[in-house]
Design a protein around this nucleic acid. Structure first.
Lengths: 242, 242
DNA sequence: CGTTGATTTGAGACGGTTCAACTGGAGTGG
DNA sequence: CCACTCCAGTTGAACCGTCTCAAATCAACG
């Protein structure tokens, strides 16, 4: 199902059957996109949104020398660029990381959905605010944590998000990111990412080999990254550890 | 006027008279808040929003040792915590920086506004997405720029935002932030902020003395910070310099 | 089996932190 | 009107986390 994972496990805003049906009816096309493909380029007008069904996508801003800073990483169930509905034009690029399957929904159909139901509007609005909350967590990560903390925080976040949509069992999950991707997420060099991953491995906290992440000591990893999942607005928050 | 500066100068979403009136009618109270006062604490339920009329506010996340990372800085015209309308609870704190005058609008009145007008809803939604776009610019700042670039980027951004609401002439503006505040924004120590400000002063690019910022060479400062105002979605973007 | 891209490792350089001390202005009370 | 305190700002010197540059290894794939 197209909307199976959308807002799944999120407090207060779970979609009811009617809403799911309405969104699915608004889908104009299901598209498969190859890995490492730019879907939306900054500055170009956008007339539709993409709901990620399968695969991984990201959003990023290039600096003067073409070095990227990732500003978002997307997993199945994410409404990748719903914000383009109100913004019309994005100031960053949107691209696939792996091969991805997305549902395309034209802006004018979202407008129609929104006019029909203020309640659904609020839920969609919520979904964009969730992105903003993640941005803030990323700001914390970059501003206050050292390289190991950043990696740890990102891995905890991704684990929690994938768990919410049933793609992690809470300890192990598949993640198709290169060390360079991780570097662009965490604002460090890929060389340093490599050293930190080794350190995590040697300390028996976490391993990341051939696309498989395994959190051997999730609590310790969360502590390293000062990770608190409150900003993900999940249904059942596991006990906080502070 | 309470809504004078709200969304002022923003592309496509300028409020019309009727919308302004509707929002002003929704205001339950105008409140003055002392400097350095926490308005909303992370985790507590929120039932109203604050529209900043005068003064400066900020939002921040504390780390384990109580060190802050600012995730947003607010100037007059900003709907500081409109996102709380959909989120219900915030995962960060909201506080004043200077003494501030705010208009309080209860969530249920926003709900009423929203039910009445999908168009106004989209504009309010836009305003929260603007915050998200700024978060992304801040991510770029922390992830890709060195200390001088971060300061430069922040000063350019603030200049542009204040100019949009008529509080900067494009070169000079009042900014009541301590060097420690700047440090918490830019993710560096206040000591280093001090050194960078000196450097900017000595190079004749920018001065910041007793709450007055003066951009002596705005283009050079923008270059240092790789600043491009596209993400502010202003009406009339000045010529890009890249 | 050669090419290509990702990962791994080492050594040196550098940006920014840390700790510590000093300056200067604003507010307060004697 | 001066002494005292407080806090933002300023400066120096040593230290350290991360970057840079360079090179080796490894895996995937045509």
């Amino acid at each position: 199902m197209v909307t199976d994972k959308l807002l799944k496990g999120r407090r207060d805003v779970v979609l009811d059957q009617k809403e799911r049906a309405a969104i699915e009816a608004a889908v104009s096309e299901i598209r498969s996109i190859p890995a490492r493909t730019v879907l939306i380029e900054a500055g170009t007008p956008v007339r539709q949104c993409a709901l990620l069904i399968d695969g991984a996508m990201c959003r990023y801003i290039d600096d003067r020398e073409g070095l990227r800073q990732l500003v978002a990483f997307h997993v199945p169930g994410d409404f990748v660029d719903l914000h383009s509905y109100a913004l019309k034009t994005l100031e960053h690029d949107v691209a696939t990381v792996t091969e991805a399957k997305v549902a395309i929904i034209p802006h004018d159909r979202i407008r129609a959905l929104s006019a029909d139901s203020p309640d659904l509007t609020r839920k969609l609005w919520f979904s964009t605010l969730l992105d903003a909350a993640m941005h803030r967590a990323w700001l914390f990560r970059l501003g206050r944590l050292d390289a190991m903390g950043r990696l740890a925080h990102f891995l905890c976040e991704t684990n929690a998000r994938l768990k919410a949509v049933g793609l992690s069992d809470g300890r192990r999950f598949q993640l198709d990111l290169t060390q360079n991707d991780l570097a662009e997420i965490c604002g460090v060099t890929s060389i340093h990412v490599n050293r930190i991953l080794r350190q995590l491995r040697e300390e028996g906290i976490c391993t990341y080999r051939s696309s498989l992440v395994e959190l051997l000591q999730p609590e310790l990893l969360a502590a390293r990254g000062q990770f608190d999942d409150a900003y993900l607005y999940l249904d059942e928050s596991p006990a906080r550890s502070d």
